[in-house]
Design a protein around this nucleic acid. Sequence first.
DNA 1: GTCTATAATCAGATAGAC
DNA 2: GTCTATCTGATTATAGAC
Lengths: 207, 207
Amino acid sequence: MTSSAQAEARRPRRPSGGPESLLDKAVLEFNARGYDATSMEDLSRAAGITKSSFYHHFAGKEALLRAALERALDGLFSALDDPPGVEPAVGPSERLRRIVTRQVRVLMDDLPYVTLLLRVRGNTPTERWALQRRKAYDAEIAALVRAAVDAGEIRAGVDPALAARLLSGLVNSVSEWYRPGRRGTASLPEDVARAIFAGVLPAADPA
Amino acid sequence: MTSSAQAEARRPRRPSGGPESLLDKAVLEFNARGYDATSMEDLSRAAGITKSSFYHHFAGKEALLRAALERALDGLFSALDDPPGVEPAVGPSERLRRIVTRQVRVLMDDLPYVTLLLRVRGNTPTERWALQRRKAYDAEIAALVRAAVDAGEIRAGVDPALAARLLSGLVNSVSEWYRPGRRGTASLPEDVARAIFAGVLPAADPA
DNA sequence: GTCTATAATCAGATAGAC
DNA sequence: GTCTATCTGATTATAGAC
């Protein structure tokens, strides 16, 4: 008997597996059908308990959303800073490259949570709160892009505001198709950073 | 009195302005709140008629969605071909550049329709039909990217499947922020094409 | 082509037993 | 911590008068 099977047997009265597991399952459902199209009935069925039992763990549908978006935003913001012990980047361009790399990594690690965040429309106070925090994050990226252009590290003629939007768009679009374990995505964070600075389809060097 | 004001006066019994106008207004509502979160009540209020009157023009909510997605998909596919009278592109790379440029233009012209399409999740038969057609479109793009790589026009080492996904992601991300009349977007189609082939943040030429 | 009124269903949420 | 039963309100859609 494996230890996980033992653990299973030790808690037969808790098929839901605790709030974290419930949140994980709920986020998957939200992403599969969209937040608004997902009912509490759907969530409880996916968790293997009844609707009423679900309300014992979360105050309601929006509380679930809030918890999920909080996790996604915390992950995103963590990509802004170098891990402790790493020497600081020499210029804004290099700092951006590191942030893009880390942001893609966060996106891959917390895919369902970040995906949910990126689809928020602003229908409820919780959603508007998330949109505001996202906006603050995007502003940090835009400021760095401006700094890189001002420092002369980027080719003349590039509009910083436009470049910042395209950068975020390219990075975030990974959530539309990436799935864990997908072939050819081992170096995805670096590949996306390369696409940002050299192009998605860079011209071949003349032979 | 302007001619549009005359037309207004000539049809006082038709405040809805016909099915096309209804569809326009409905798509705006869908995008503002999300398709599922938008009720028929919301739609009829935005159109200035009652819910019942709305049902006189469209069979239901899904019929509206179908009509809107059809228009978006027709626009997208129209970007695949050169307009009549234009000489064909010399290679796959140049053909891709033209398609990207035209696709961004379609996105800008039919922004609400394309936005709606890009947010479809697959909850209903209509949505799954739209997803299938989108998939077919993406496959055409992916085939062209492969051809460009095989022709040696793209720098060695670029994975065609990944590049195709990033290309579509970058192009489609424009729908997340573009609004008609926005400053600095006059040359957006060309700017996006340049970002694809040279990078969002191309390094400055060494002085 | 528009309206009022209403049917039928389903949603989020709660009460209270075990 | 889970359940059955239920409340309340919103939603899609229709009937039928004008």
